[in-house]
Design a protein around this nucleic acid. Sequence first.
DNA 1: GTAGTATACGGAGGGTCCCTCCGTTTTGCA
DNA 2: TGCAAAACGGAGGGACCCTCCGTATACTAC
Lengths: 213, 213
Amino acid sequence: MAESEAIEPADSVSTDRRPRADAIRNRDLLIVAAAEAFAARGADVPLEDIARNAGVGIGTLYRHFPTRESLVEAVYRHEIDVLCERADQFLESMPPEQALAEWMQLFVVHVATKRGMLSLLKPLLSTNPNFSDQTRGRATAAASKLLEAGVAAGTIRADVDGGDLLRAVGGICMSTDQERSAASERLVGLLFDGLRHGAAGSPSATQPGNASV
Amino acid sequence: MAESEAIEPADSVSTDRRPRADAIRNRDLLIVAAAEAFAARGADVPLEDIARNAGVGIGTLYRHFPTRESLVEAVYRHEIDVLCERADQFLESMPPEQALAEWMQLFVVHVATKRGMLSLLKPLLSTNPNFSDQTRGRATAAASKLLEAGVAAGTIRADVDGGDLLRAVGGICMSTDQERSAASERLVGLLFDGLRHGAAGSPSATQPGNASV
DNA sequence: GTAGTATACGGAGGGTCCCTCCGTTTTGCA
DNA sequence: TGCAAAACGGAGGGACCCTCCGTATACTAC
């Protein structure tokens, strides 16, 4: 069955064809609006508000995301997408250790965003190991890439892997549960300084004290 | 202000007097109905259903328990009450090691009951350390009393305290997340056999194999 | 360019649940 | 027994959920 379908590229009429352009656009709008809404008002925000803020009807929201969970999942996947993308962009546009620092701070912001969805995200991650593995794996890969670049440049110590880094930063963000995440940013800055310390290159060659902004 | 009020025991008119009999009765009915409803249908069960099953109006429910959380809290306190009461009853009516075994199995049932409320109970316990300490403390005391009686009788080993026991039994119940709690009961039975083993008295004097029904 | 059709949109509307408010009933005290 | 105070109960307005279907739009074929 799977074999025969793989060979069949003849006509694309009855098979699944690309979604319409407006469908793609609206789906993206919904994900952005949902991310904002979950971050600002928690997981219980009315879906009708999300639809309105996205500029679409409630019916459109339900067609794309039949359940609140499916919307949360899409938002989370999107967050991970952005995080991975940014890792690459940072690596191309700045020195590795700065890229790492910026990315870690970006991660703090993203965790803050996700806090509102947490009550829905947690059961989702625990009941859906597939989803959990995928997202965690991709985030870990991004972290590892940044670390390795720093190690190769001699500005980041080599005895920390991506998984460790994510756990550490995530842990800091979760423990500083408070209102504003200024404390998280400071602590993550400290962590970064630790990563720089003991690297092959000069331990405090770049800037002394805190990391990035 | 507070001083002057403390001296005023003269008439009990304006001060707090006992609630009316029907108020007490209805409050109890609501707690029982809520416990059943949370266990059977989860934390999201409509409050109107609970009121109906308790045989009171929705207004009465809201007067006694202004929020869903306050109802959950009352149910939980009540569960702990029952658990502590039963510990004493068991100790009076049967040999200590049997009392302990029965109580452990009762605990399994109570955890199963609480599972439905868990999503509301968890935030309650974490944000309200007072409540958390009180309930945990009382449950631990009950467990300790049972253990000590067994130790004094020479049928239970002495190197386990109430806190350990609760954590172990609770952990077993939580990890066997499945439908029916038959597995929990079996595992807790095993745990009990472990408690009997190594006691001062005969290790397997009572019944060999599994513990109670 | 145009016609035709699969696809997507949007919001009205019915249903559920929440919670308040207030007229009625019951209880306990004098 | 009389009478407040306390408690009861449920109607009703509001919020939110989700479905359904008539309308609008984007692709495809010619």
